[in-house]
Amino acid sequence: MNTGPLLTTETKVWLRDPAAVFFALVFPALLLVGLGLVIPDFRNPMEDPGLPWDSAPNVTVWLPTMLALAVATISLTTMPVQFATFREKGVLRRLATTPMPPRNLIGAHLVINVVALLVAASAAVVGGMTILDVPFAVNPLVVLLCFVLATTAMFSLGLLVAARADRASAASGIGMLIYFPSLLFSGVWVPIPVMPEWMAQIAKYTPIGAASQGMLAGWFGDDFPLTQVLVMAAWTAVLFPLGVKLFRWT
């Protein structure tokens, strides 16, 4: 079965939703650069003798958080609503009557969302480095590993939300209910280095908190974030099969 035309058409249609495109693609980069430019202290150099770079602005600690935010935004606000909409509008049922299996539509949208996520993450990194002079990661491979695991864990969570929510509005509501605590644990409101110890401990065992902490460790060249990596892998191993098993097609 050639899924090419389906993927192309779905991408075109996806790009027609201005709100989804804004939040999925632009929001993390805009938040990073916008706040970096507005709050003067964000661009002041960090005063920490143990830094791997000669100079780095304060906003550097925020970049890994923005990458986690990009993952959370797409997986919890964009994707579940799309999938629930397909079910609610009968798109999945309609496809079931054709030779194209409905799971291919879900597959096409996973691809679209992963690409969107890569665009959003790249925009945040490039924006931070060019506009705010954020230095590049010390261990890019560790950042990449954590980013990939964050994606699998959070997409699985999003799939689980989409699996059971019978309406788009319900998917949106449940997604938001998880999204806002996720922002807290990822360090959007309280940067990770100044997060109270008890909060950091809780965050470490959430998929998004582990993602943020792991990518921060990679960016600053700290010890390998083994616990965080295992936490994300474990969430994926539990949530993904659950999401697939519980997914309702009609």
Binding site: M1, R16, V91, R94
Partner: peptide
């Protein structure tokens, strides 16, 4: 099917083309 079953933002031409590809 009884009820409408397409994405609101897909055009008539696109819908026909993509269904034809199946």
């Amino acid at each position: 099917l009884q009820e409408a079953a397409l994405h609101d933002r897909i055009t008539v031409g696109e819908a026909l083309d993509v269904f034809a590809s199946f």
